[in-house]
Amino acid sequence: MIELVQTYWVYFLVGQYPNGPLGGLALTVLLAALALVLALPLGVVLGLARISPFRTIRWPVTVIVYVVRGVPLLMVIFWAYFFLPSVTGHKTEQFSTMLIALVLFDGVYLAEIVRAGILGIPRGQFECARSLGLGYWRTMRLVILPQALRHMLPSLVNQFVATIKETSLGYIIGLTEVSFIAAQINTQVFTRAPEVYGLLALTYFVLCFGLSRVAYGLEQRLVRGSPVRPAASTVTAVQSLKAPA
């Protein structure tokens, strides 16, 4: 097992880089991070649309959400893989295909997380902001979303973990992410399949378990209360201005 790791660890971690495109674990993490970063704005937009008071916005988005959540991710990847070329005019390579499929798929899941997060904010917050005279969008931007996104942080980290696992499906369309690399290693070594795939599983475990611990830590911090800021200069400024009573 040790020689296996020693021989192939670079290939496993970064693929053929720098002699070729980035691959392996680095590609897995990069793809997942990029997908989540792009999916989050989409998720916020779709989540807001799902609670929109206007039916013409709410219904189509609800249909999209139900359809995307009702089919496997692999289906979305295949749709992207087979139909993007005809839409864009030229053959789309695997990374872009996976990225687009992941952004759409995760965006829809994030939409539900965002929606739940917004609905979890007490109604009084919304009423109060409106009572101050803030319009709907300002209320969302300044009062509701900051609170909702903060509460959603552990869910977002968990979604990142899920996305890392989703990148493994790139294997099926030939993307050189870490599972594909493991399979390549296996064909070269051939008689050590349990070890190769055992190491693959271990790698995912370390990465994903580590991240889910971070999510847990975040959740505990959120439960304990709002962040404490250092004592500010504004207080001393006022006190120096005010004449002693």
Partner: peptide, 9 residues
């Protein structure tokens, strides 16, 4: 005024 930088919690 002395609580200007305090959070509601």
């Amino acid at each position: 005024a002395h609580k200007a930088d305090a959070y509601p919690s």
